[in-house]
Design a protein around this nucleic acid. Structure first.
Lengths: 232, 232
DNA sequence: GATAAAACTCGTACAGTGTGCGAGTGGTTT
DNA sequence: AAACCACTCGCACACTGTACGAGTTTTATC
């Protein structure tokens, strides 16, 4: 009784591809455009085929299935994360930059949020990110499993902060009526006096700005907490 | 030019329901069972109708659309979070208990992870949670927007730690071959010497246990970081 | 140039999805 | 008897990923 394996594009050799016609790169590029334009829901093999002037099922020559295609585009996205030079940066700077950049990348490609955890992240870009992060943490003095734990804590915060945010945006649309939403929340909270009181006092803020401040607050707190784990 | 509103079950009066037949509660209960048994993907109006021995479209008498139904079940889930008595608990105990309980609830109802952020959480259970959390933080000494920020940081960590976890489980299935997966990851990392070296050294661990330890590590770090924000 | 093999294309088909619409049913009130 | 209400539900629409197998083009070998 062997346990389950899992399949990943990165674990099998690609096709020979002496190809004169379409190529995997071309398909990935087109998929990325479609995803950015219309979201995860907007990417279908038929639409992608149409964009490339090909039959939908022709794509299955280059890619085993839709998940493999998504794995490819997913890694492309992690390649957009910008990091400071590993060697010169303090670990806090590095971690902070990485967190901010990951967040920006997810905000720029909201569909990617739905793939986090659902697909293996074994592509070169994803691995390179974790590799550099781990090296920095090690030179900073983290030892053994603490390297994994610290990384997990940081990425968990970024994901947990950003995933619901983009989920909300892409399910509710972009154009908010801020005072109206404030009002709605206040009305929903009418059975909770303290909550309702807070809503009554607070001014409706620009949520974009609020999110950024909140993210910084959380990030700094976490880095402080991790640093405390370091000195002992 | 008014901005967009958003619709929520909790913001409109329910039907009169002098009903002798089906009821909203009954539907929600059946939906919850279906979701726990077959996941978000497994809940369709047709299946739900079949389970209740009703036509699929009959359900639309009690519920405006599928999202409203999901909102109802979603809040049901937050009602399962168990908290210590507000008045006697230290804020760290309280926050820690809340984080752990939220995590357990999501693990118990993995489909709920996909709804976080996608649906408004304005039900009584969800509001009660945030209400109690905020009250505890205020009595602990957090002031103004810091109450929001601290809450956001904590929930972000829980979500970000747990969402990818359950996404992985429900996309890859439950039965892992741990050494095999360890091997696969090591093979994928062959182009990153340090990463590969770490894989070579580390023993494959029981992931269940690992996750729990990592969660505690992160949680404690975050609470430390938040506490530092408190004393100033 | 012939022939075989490999690389590539794609139409069809299947079993499913949420839900708007409008017609129909049975009970209660005027 | 008439009107209203609460409620049920079949049909239809435009989609989805992809297995299958037959067809077409390019390349390699003799």
């Amino acid at each position: 009784m062997t346990g389950k394996q899992f399949p990943s594009v990165w674990l099998r050799e690609p096709r020979k591809t002496a190809s004169p016609g379409r190529s995997r790169d071309e398909i990935v590029r087109a998929a990325l455009e479609l995803l950015d334009a219309e979201g995860l829901h907007g990417l279908s093999m038929r639409k992608l085929g149409a964009k490339l002037v090909t039959g939908a099922t022709s794509l299955y020559w280059y890619v085993a299935n839709k998940d493999e295609l998504l794995e490819l585009v997913y890694d492309e996205v992690w390649g957009e994360v910008r990091l400071p030079e590993s060697e010169t940066a303090h670990w806090r700077e590095f971690a902070s930059a990485m967190a901010h950049s990951m967040r920006q990348v997810i905000l720029r490609h909201p569909w990617s949020a739905d793939l986090i955890g659902r697909l293996p992240a074994l592509g070169p870009s994803a691995l390179s990110l974790t590799d550099r992060m781990r090296r920095i943490l090690k030179t900073a003095g983290f030892r053994g499993a603490d390297v994994d734990y610290a990384t997990a804590t940081l990425t968990a915060f970024v994901y947990g902060f950003t995933i619901p945010e983009v989920a909300w945006k892409s399910s509710m649309g972009e154009g908010y009526d801020i005072p109206a939403m404030h009002d709605i929340a206040a009305r929903a909270a009418r059975d909770f006096p303290d909550l309702a009181a807070d809503f009554a006092v607070e001014q409706p803020q620009d949520p974009q700005v609020m999110r950024e401040v909140a993210f910084d607050f959380g990030l700094v707190s976490i880095l402080d907490g991790l640093e405390a784990r370091l000195v002992t």
